[in-house]
Structure formats: structure tokens, C-alpha cells
């Protein structure tokens, strides 16, 4: 059940992504509409994060192509923003909250230029949106998980992009933060921005997202939540398919490196 749309903001065509010659995403083909809050749903190891990393050009594709705003990524980088998983950075890094949010302005500043007053104003405005204004000079090592996530969100907002990719922004945050974030994401989509979120908690899906991508190494479904987020498709996504595909992946990998069989098994 894959719903294709006219004038898509994201178009993924025949995308296959491999880690170390082992495919983790198979032949994904989808298109996404503008101005929606879109959830990427699937079990662990389904390739949810891989999908957005590959769209952002952080990992190479084995095959297929991706178009954003009907263009190549390199031409539209300035219109796209990214929120990585919180655990990917060292929060003991010697930096303050405002330092991190200002990083959102770096792409627009270009080489050698320092952030100016206007950039600081944008950063402060974004901190206000996530209710973190008072923490502007706080060291990032002193933040709670929810506060860290808000800072990451403020940094993405500071890019003033049209299309946002977020990797598990709701993972391990408190209820208040979750509420703040979802309210903010709704406001963004109302303004015509598109927000694509990797999401784990199945219960909140119908409440949060108006479009869902169901993923389990291959694309199971993509479409409006009410017609796509059905028990049938959920079963297909979380059912026994994963084992089969991952076994095929393992076989492929071993076939190319026969001498490495022993180490692969250990891994």
C-alpha cells in the first residue's frame, strides 16, 4: 500500500542502502507530500534512521536516487534541517546552550564568518520556542535528556529550513518535553513546513502523524495515517518478514567475503 503523490517534496526512487555490503534497506520507492507531519515507523533494525541519513547524504546509496524539492540534495541543502539522535554527541563537550543553537546558523554563514547579532537573535527566538530561553548560558553537560532534545530542536529551527528530518526526537524525554515538541511540530506543518520524524512509540502514532511510512528493511506502506496505519499493515511490518530478509542479507555478505565467514558469525 504505497500512496504516491503529485509534486512531492521528497521523492525516493529504488533506493537500496548497504552497510558493509550488507543491504539494510531494499528498493524503497516513495514520494511524500508537502506540509505534513510524517512518521517513519518500524521495528528495531528496520532501517528507519538509515533512511533519513541516506536522504541527508550522510551515508552512500548502493542504488537509486533521491530528489528533494525536485532537485539534488547539494542544491537545496540550505532548505533542509536535521536533528540527529541525542546520544550521537558527547554532552560533556565544553559548550553552552546558545553555542549549540548557533550551530544552526553555520550553514548559512559560510566559511570564516562569525555569527552576527541577527544570528544570535534568531537563536534566542528558537530557544524561546522550545521554552529554554532561561538556559541560554547553561553548560550542555548540565542539561537533562528532555532539555538536550529541546536544544537540538532549537538548533534545527535556527536553520529556518522548509524540510526537517528528526531522528527519534521523542526517545527518552519527559512528558512535558514531548508535549512541547509535538505542539511545535504541528505549528511548523501548519506554516507549510514538512517534518519527517523517526518514531518508536506505536500508541501515539495516530494522534501525532497525518502521514506514515511503515518500514521493515523494505517499504511496507506509505500513505495517510487513517488508511495506512491499520492492524493488517502493522502485522506485516512487525511480523516475521524481518528474519527472512536479514538472512538473505547475511548470505549476500558472506558470498562476497567467503574467507571472512568466521568473523561475520561472531559479529
Amino acid at each position: 500500500m504505497i500512496t504516491q503523490v503529485e509534486n512531492p517534496i521528497v521523492e525516493i526512487h529504488d533506493l537500496t542502502v548497504s552497510y558493509d555490503k550488507k543491504p539494510v534497506l531494499w528498493d524503497v520507492d516513495l514520494s511524500l507530500p508537502k506540509g505534513h507531519l510524517i512518521g517513519i515507523i518500524g521495528p528495531n533494525g528496520a532501517g528507519k534512521s538509515t533512511l533519513i541519513k541516506s536522504v541527508m547524504g550522510l551515508i552512500p546509496n548502493s542504488s537509486g536516487y533521491i530528489k528533494l524539492f525536485d532537485q539534488d540534495l547539494s542544491k537545496v541543502r540550505g532548505r533542509i534541517s536535521y536533528v540527529p539522535q541525542r546520544e550521537t554527541v558527547d554532552w560533556d563537550f565544553p559548550a553552552s546552550v546558545i553555542d549549540v543553537v548557533l550551530m544552526g546558523r553555520y550553514g548559512k554563514l559560510g566559511l570564516f564568518k562569525r555569527p552576527r547579532k541577527a544570528d544570535i537573535e534568531v537563536a534566542m527566538d528558537c530557544l524561546r520556542k522550545v521554552d529554554m530561553e532561561a538556559f541560554k548560558d547553561r553548560q550542555i553537560s548540565q542539561l537533562s535528556g528532555g532539555q538536550q532534545q529541546r536544544v537540538f530542536l532549537a538548533r534545527a529551527l535556527a536553520q529556518q529550513a522548509d524540510l526537517y528530518f528528526m531522528d527519534e526526537p521523542f526517545a527518552g524525554v519527559d512528558a512535558a518535553t514531548e508535549k512541547t515538541i509535538i505542539k511545535l511540530l504541528r505549528e511548523m506543518t501548519e506554516r507549510g513546513n514538512t517534518v519527517i520524524v523517526v518514531h518508536h512509540d506505536l500508541q501515539s502514532v495516530p494522534q501525532y502523524f497525518d502521514w506514515v511510512i511503515m518500514l521493515n528493511m523494505r517499504l511496507v506502506a506509505s500513505g495517510p495515517t487513517e488508511s495506512t496505519f491499520t492492524s493488517e499493515i502493522l502485522q506485516e511490518t512487525y511480523g516475521g518478514k524481518l528474519t527472512l530478509l536479514s538472512e538473505v542479507g547475511n548470505l549476500l555478505k558472506q558470498g562476497r567475503f567467503p574467507s571472512r565467514e568466521q568473523t561475520e558469525v561472531k559479529n
Binding site: 550522510l58 541543502r77 566559511l111
Partner: peptide, 22 residues
């Protein structure tokens, strides 16, 4: 002095740096 912010960002969060084109 010239690469302060690039060094800062690529050290703190390489994935995000790549995403914004650094």
C-alpha cells in the same frame, strides 16, 4: 581563528556538520 566554528562543529557533531554542508 579562521576555522573556529567549522572545527567546533565538526568536533562536536560531525553528522550535523555534514548535513549543513561542512
Amino acid at each position: 581563528a579562521t576555522g573556529y566554528k567549522e572545527l567546533f562543529l565538526t568536533t562536536f557533531d560531525p553528522a550535523y556538520a555534514t548535513a549543513v554542508g561542512i
